Deep mutational scan, measured.
Amino acid sequence: SRHTFEINGERWTVEGVSEELKEILRAAERASNDEAERLLRLALKLI
């Protein structure tokens, strides 16, 4: 499935992501810059 999210003013669209990964991306959208970066690094390990 496709998911579009915005982090630090940048929009991203990813396809074929699991519900778990979507949850991480949604958390990154709400997080501070440092926390968002940490969550994105974690998410990339899952891809």
Rank of each mutant, 00 (worst) to 15 (best):
K22N: 07
E10F: 10
L46W: 10
L46C: 06
L39F: 07
A36V: 07
A31W: 04
E35Y: 06
L42Q: 07
L46D: 02
A27D: 08
R2D: 10
A28I: 10
K22F: 14
A27E: 13
A31I: 03
R38M: 12
E15M: 10
H3C: 13
E15D: 10
W12E: 01
L44H: 05
L39G: 00
G16H: 13
G16N: 14
A27L: 13
R2H: 14
T13D: 06
I7D: 01
H3L: 15
K22G: 10
A27N: 11
H3M: 11
E6G: 01
E37Q: 09
A43I: 12
S18H: 06
K45I: 12
E37T: 10
V17N: 05
V14T: 05
E15R: 03
H3Y: 15
V17D: 06
H3T: 08
I7Y: 05
D34M: 13
S1E: 15
R38Y: 13
R38H: 08
N8C: 09
E23Y: 08
V14N: 02
E20P: 06
I47V: 07
E20A: 10
E10N: 08
V14Y: 08
I47A: 08
W12R: 00
G16K: 07
H3R: 02
I47N: 02
G16S: 10
K45N: 09
D34W: 10
T13K: 03
T13A: 05
S1N: 15
A36S: 09
L44I: 13
V14R: 01
E10V: 15
E35D: 06
N8M: 14
G9M: 03
N33S: 15
L39P: 00
D34C: 11
L42I: 12
I24D: 00
R41H: 10
R38L: 09
E10W: 09
T13C: 10
V14F: 15
G9S: 02
R30N: 14
K45A: 10
A36K: 13
A28M: 08
R2T: 15
K22R: 14
E19C: 07
T4L: 04
L21N: 01
G9D: 03
E6D: 10
L39Q: 02
L46I: 14
R2A: 14
G16V: 10
S18Q: 04
R38V: 14
S32G: 11
V14K: 01
I47H: 06
V14W: 09
E37N: 12
W12C: 03
E19H: 08
W12K: 01
S18K: 03
L40A: 03
R41I: 13
R30I: 08
I24H: 02
E10H: 12
L25W: 03
E19F: 07
I47P: 01
H3K: 03
L40V: 07
E37P: 02
A28H: 03
F5A: 00
R41A: 12
